[in-house]
């Protein structure tokens, strides 16, 4: 038998005003994996998440949560999901605790001890009995995380979870998500912030205009020796380039400013290139190894387009 994914989307489509906002999207999230949905604003990430949690209907396709079709087994499937969809809007006239009680009452197996445990986890002990209207954005976000975790879901879905978190908060959230994933929880995180995804996720699905561009392994992306080596040297860069073309015909070198940029895979290659340059009389005063970031991969994948302007590289 095929291994059951915690979450599986098959050809999921959403039509709005005659346009496919989400277009035949398929992917599977494995048990204990942190899976990122990455794409510019308006790419269809939130729409996809809303379909998974049943807030909007699907125009076509299938969504399975632990093998349960959400259309046929809606309540059973939803029991296994904890989610934040965009900003976690809580009842601001209730205290944080009473907000959590609202959800505790209607989810299976949430005890008062569990509530206290989750409150401690998101470090809201001080403010939990204050009304939510007095909370900062970060506190609301943490309360949102708390409500999503209450019933120990096997699938946790967080839409832009780091919104409003300070660096420390983001760091804590990442660590906690990793802990949960190690315990077997599958986590789907959406973001348009690349750096964040790189730090947080195991795999990333890149989405643009509702379509899946590709699914990538984050560790591969960063570890893959797709490094670009920048040689800083004195002398004619063009001469250096032709030298390289002569000795390393399989390499393509680029010239930029005062650098010669070569894609190299191994330390051996880098050493060889350096040796050639030095032997030919170039003064090499620096070698920098720049790994391709997810961001560059992303740009490569999605091509050029106005949408890319919306992608932030670092935090907002």
């Amino acid at each position: 038998m095929e291994t059951v994914h915690t979450l599986e989307l098959k050809e999921v489509t959403k039509k709005m005003k005659g346009e496919n906002v989400v277009n035949h999207l398929s992917f599977g999230v494995r048990k204990g994996e942190i899976f990122g949905l990455l794409g510019p604003n308006g790419a269809g990430k939130t729409t996809t998440i809303r379909m998974i949690v049943g807030l909007i209907s699907m125009s076509g396709g299938e969504i399975l949560v632990n093998g349960l079709d959400i259309r046929k087994n809606y309540e059973k499937a939803m029991e296994q999901i904890g989610a934040i969809v965009e900003n976690p809007q809580m009842y601001d006239y209730l205290t944080g605790y009473k907000n959590l009680m609202q959800y505790a009452r209607i989810m299976p197996g949430v005890t008062r001890e569990r509530i206290d445990e989750v409150v401690k986890l998101v470090e809201l002990e001080q403010a939990i009995h204050k009304k939510v209207k007095t909370y900062s954005l970060g506190m609301r976000q943490r309360l949102g995380v708390a409500q999503a975790l209450l019933h120990r879901p096997s699938l946790l879905i967080l839409d832009e979870p780091t919104n409003g978190l300070d660096p420390q908060g983001m760091h804590d959230l990442r660590n906690y998500l990793r802990l949960l994933a190690d315990q077997g929880t599958s986590i789907v995180v959406s973001s348009h912030i690349l750096a964040e995804m790189e730090l947080m996720c195991d795999r990333v699905a890149v989405i643009q205009n509702g379509k899946l561009i590709r699914i990538d392994n984050v560790t591969n992306v960063t570890d893959q020796a797709q490094a670009r080596v920048h040689f800083l040297l004195q002398g004619s860069l063009n001469d250096a380039k032709s030298l390289l073309a002569e000795h390393f015909p399989e390499k393509t070198a680029e010239v930029s400013d005062k650098e010669l940029i070569v894609e190299a895979n191994t330390t051996q290659e880098i050493g060889d290139i350096n040796k050639r340059l030095v032997e030919a009389g170039f003064l090499v005063y620096g070698i920098q190894l720049k790994k391709k970031t997810l961001e560059e991969r992303f740009l490569e994948m999605t091509g050029k387009g106005g949408d890319l302007n919306e992608v932030s590289v670092a935090g907002q």
Binding site: V53, E75, A83, E86, Q89, I106, M107
Partner: peptide
């Protein structure tokens, strides 16, 4: 209006 409806509708209830 407040957006709290979505926190309610993602619970396991039709």
């Amino acid at each position: 209006a407040k957006g709290t409806i979505k926190m309610l509708l993602i619970r396991p209830y039709s």
